[in-house]
Amino acid sequence: MSDLLLDCRGITKRFGGLVAVNALDLQIPAGSIHSVIGPNGAGKTTLFNCITGFYHPEEGEILLGGSHHLEFLRTDEITRLGVARTYQNIRLFPELTAVENVMVGLHARLESSLLGVLFSSPATRKEERWATEEALRLLEVVGLGGKGDGLASNLPYGDQRRLEIARALATDPKLLLLDEPTAGMNTGETASMIRFIRRLRDDLDITILLIEHDMKLVMEISELITVVDFGQKIAEGKPSEILANPRVIEAYLGRGAAEALDVRTAAAAPGAAHDATSDADADAAADTASDSGTPPGPEPTSSAGSQPDPVDEGGGSA
């Protein structure tokens, strides 16, 4: 891949004694879908915060499009350069309506002057009309058509996640950072989110950087995966490579799982990568289910049942 959209070189972010991100390199080619995975507290969100200017890394540099040094810029300047994001804990403007939330996202693209606003100049009126229409259109795009006039805080959870994406799209991003976009969604919603993210890249040409815990989604959608643990990059590669990487499995699923999986991947080694995917996924699901104490009942089965369809899709596009 030739032109890098985002190039993070050796970024380090400390909180007191804690090194949340440790000399991390990350290269995102334009037009790719790239995932960052890692256990809880690995530093994924902190990485996003460094890229978007919420935190300034102590070391390293972040280059956008080869020329802009993001590490020196303020959040609003970074946004204006075409980097938008969503948040792990949804952060909408709760007391504004959905349309207004999106219109705030359009802020940087509007240029009416104070005088134009005060005297209601034709240019301002035209721009406001455009902004309203554009906001409504973006709501349509994320599937929230007709829900624009309710307060953001009154939308159901899944709709709030979509609204956050609509608001991010309103800034006209080249690079979109999604922090666990399917957290709290059911399998149906997750499947449509996968299709939606792919459409963003395919139709709108937006490069996607994604944090996800849902392994199925990650394996299916990502072209490249970066695995982070304790702030450090421990592996990077295609989904099949990541799944076969014992270090990843150890960090991510725990030692026991790594050994169990080792046997199986060895056995299935000659087969297609798809098989490895579904195995690992089922294992991961079972693992998290037993970890969190929920009875391993219909959940893993149903996710396994819905497997073929999305995997086919993934195979088609890859």
């Binding site: 959040t75 952060r91 909408l92 007391e95 705030v104 940087a108 608001r167």
Partner: peptide, 23 residues
């Protein structure tokens, strides 16, 4: 009802996120 007013209200709701909207 202008971009300035919306920016103010975004500020009121969540200053960090407002900044992340390019404000």
């Amino acid at each position: 009802h202008s971009r300035f007013g919306r920016a103010w209200m975004a500020l009121r709701e969540d200053e960090n996120i407002a900044e992340a909207m390019g404000i």
